[in-house]
Simulated assay, not measured.
Amino acid sequence: MTTSSRKLDHIRICLDNPVESEGVVARSFDDLVLVHKALPEIDEADIDTSCRFLGRKLSAPLMISAMTGGHPSVKEINVNLALAASELGIAMGVGSQRAALEEESLKDTFSAVRDAAPDIPIIGNIGAVQLKRSGPGILDQLAEMIDADAIAVHLNFLQESIQPEGDRDASGVVKVLGEAANGSVPIIVKETGAGISRETAASLADVGVKMIDVSGQGGLSWAGVETYRAAEIGDCDLEEMGRLFWSWGIPTPVSIVECRSIGLDVISSGGIRSGLDVAKSLSLGASLAGTALPMLKPATKDAKAVVRAMSPYLRALRICMFLTGCRRAGELKGVPLVVLGRTREWLGARGYDLNEFSAYRELTK
């Protein structure tokens, strides 16, 4: 099967089937409670959600995360996402550009994004294994293809473990990421739904990586997507493995804390389903939050549908800022946060001081 055909499989499965993480670990953001400020002492009209990202101004610390590209049928999806991101003034990532490297005719399924959104940050995308095989020089080609502001190098070894055509050679990836991090194109190391630990973040920081997209457990499960594909071709062994590892990974809130503890700049993604989740992510230390799956079905309609789906995120973020007394989005990092449930247990077991997120924040201002 070609890379292009596989991309179409992924879109079809995500549109037609439940593909999110399951069970008690699925909604870790529900374990986080921002402490309400009954006297916010600010005028809501003065709230400014804007920020800067990759040298460009955004209306809010939000992005439409990497989703698709690489098949003629999905070009319109990417254009609708880009038009919506441009209208809203938020960032956007594209799916893996591997297919366009293999087939020249598919480049416009990616380049159309920059044509539709000339002024927002656009993040390109390539797998770590493909980067290792092609060498860091490929990043310039990928960036030029879409006039990208940065390239996300994705880590998807859980997906590869379940994918019938999966490539499971993860050797030498840290070294090539270090070479890429010291190149001319900014990179973002991005997981794809299983999160990044403190130990992995430290390894990345040691070789010069500055920014991580945690893409933690709690949103779309690529093991789940590949479970459906394995079932369709009758591979019962891989289907069984996919169901077993459907919800494998580090929950997004935990992964934010783990990566921030190393001092890296963090993008929160993986189960971001509202502006409240965005605010909680910023409170934990993320600088930006991204969502993908909830925007897919609207993008099959038109850009206006994507704007309607994303606009409540911006409104909820603004309300969260008002109810916690924050005039600027960056001030959410100082808001007291109560951590409950399994997330509290996880962070405690990993040795983190939970006072850092509670009233202690107020006492140390």
Rank of each mutant, 00 (worst) to 15 (best):
V94F: 10
T68I: 12
G70K: 05
A60W: 04
L34G: 04
A38R: 12
G95Y: 12
P61H: 02
D43N: 15
F29A: 04
L81A: 10
A60Y: 08
E76I: 01
G69T: 09
I42C: 07
L54G: 03
L83S: 12
A91M: 05
N78K: 02
H36L: 12
C51F: 02
S28G: 15
I42T: 08
R52G: 06
G69E: 04
L88S: 08
N78A: 00
M67K: 06
S96N: 11
S65V: 13
L81D: 08
I90K: 06
A84S: 11
G89H: 06
D46Y: 02
V33H: 15
P61L: 00
S59H: 10
I90G: 03
V33C: 04
L58K: 08
I90H: 07
N80M: 08
K75F: 04
G69N: 03
I47V: 12
D31T: 01
N80D: 12
L88D: 06
L88Y: 07
I47D: 03
R52S: 15
S65N: 15
K75M: 13
L62V: 12
P40S: 08
R27A: 12
A60S: 14
Q97M: 14
A85Q: 08
A45M: 11
L83T: 13
D46H: 14
D46P: 07
G55F: 12
D30E: 15
A66W: 03
A82E: 10
S28Q: 13
V94H: 05
D30M: 03
D48T: 11
V35G: 00
A91P: 10
I77L: 11
V94M: 11
S50C: 03
P72H: 13
M92N: 01
E76T: 12
P61Q: 04
L39W: 10
G89I: 06
L81E: 08
G93L: 02
A66K: 01
N78Q: 04
A60E: 11
C51K: 10
S59P: 08
A85D: 06
L81Y: 13
R27I: 00
K57R: 15
I47N: 06
G70D: 05
T49I: 03
L39N: 13
S96F: 12
D43Y: 05
D31M: 01
D31I: 01
N78I: 00
V74D: 08
P61M: 01
A91E: 06
K75G: 03
H71C: 01
H36G: 00
D31C: 07
